[in-house]
């Protein structure tokens, strides 16, 4: 598997009114790997993802997809780039006036020329992976939070995208449901081999899935490290984050290693 960066953010700045949220974000996402962006709430983690998706334009800086800048492209080109993306939004963003089946079928109906029979086969296959069989005719409002997230993931996977973005995938779920979602994520990634970008503050659990961890602090990415390097980092900011989120256990392990 290649290790070239599929997505790069170079010195991205963004402000809203007088509030400077991103202050020179640099990040690269490696193809086929899972990159987790962590950081305190309200730091702009989701905003980074929205920049990559082209939903927000940076005040300054560049966002590259496969070496091509996406900030200045036409709407049509942006649509083509987005064909490579699948997104699981924080609140799943399911279409509430459509059934589970129609939600998952929508990208296939709108973006492909498949027949309804072919679409049905793919949709049922994806729903089965997510343990959602028999829920075709339910509406999102009739589902639990965990089920909604799994429908969102099924919809994100239905076009077999190259990159999937997870915006706070386990927010609002209890420990068992979070574990279940992580299990589904792990299984589908092993099977489909997609690149994943996860925005989460569910540390340390989410680190188990990560190939790389980026800490967003004070509007910039502090560092991009493997989970082991991240937990053992000497950087005072990263160390403080690790100790705050994981407790002193990991830092004592580091001291043992020294």
């Amino acid at each position: 598997m290649s290790t070239q960066p599929v997505i790069e953010l170079i010195d991205v700045w963004k402000s809203f009114g007088s509030q400077q949220v991103l202050k020179g974000v640099n990040l690269s996402v490696t193809e086929g790997k899972t990159t987790v962006i962590v950081g305190a709430s309200g730091q702009g983690k989701s905003l980074i993802v929205r920049h990559i998706l082209g939903l927000v334009k940076p005040d300054k800086g560049k966002v590259l997809f496969c070496g091509k800048e996406i900030t200045g492209v036409s709407k049509k080109e942006l649509m083509e780039i987005r064909m490579n993306f699948g997104v699981l939004f924080q609140n799943a963003a399911l279409f509430d006036s459509m059934t589970v089946y129609d939600n998952v079928a929508l990208p296939l109906r709108e973006r492909t020329r498949k027949t309804e029979r072919e679409i049905g086969k793919i949709v049922h296959e994806k729903l089965a992976i997510m343990d959602l069989g028999g829920n075709d005719d339910k509406y999102p409002a009739q589902l639990s939070g965990g089920m909604r997230k799994r429908v969102g993931l099924a919809r994100a996977l239905v076009l077999d995208p190259r990159i999937i973005f997870f915006d706070e995938p386990t927010t609002g779920l209890d420990a068992a449901k979070s574990r279940e979602l992580y299990r589904v994520f792990y299984q589908t990634q092993a099977r489909l081999g997609y690149t994943a970008v996860i925005v989460s503050h569910d540390v340390p659990k989410v680190l188990k899935l990560a190939d790389y961890v980026a800490l967003l602090h004070d509007g910039a990415i502090r560092d991009l490290l493997t989970p082991e390097e991240f937990q053992l980092s000497q950087d005072p900011v990263i160390r403080e984050y690790v100790e705050t989120t994981m407790g002193p256990l990991y830092s004592s392990k580091m001291e043992d290693a020294i």
Partner: peptide, 22 residues
């Protein structure tokens, strides 16, 4: 408006579906 605040319009754009058309 509800589609906008619940990110359904963003979701459409991310699926490369034109919300104006849809």
């Amino acid at each position: 408006g509800i589609m906008r605040i619940s990110e359904q319009i963003d979701a459409l754009e991310c699926m490369a579906i034109d919300p104006h058309k849809f």
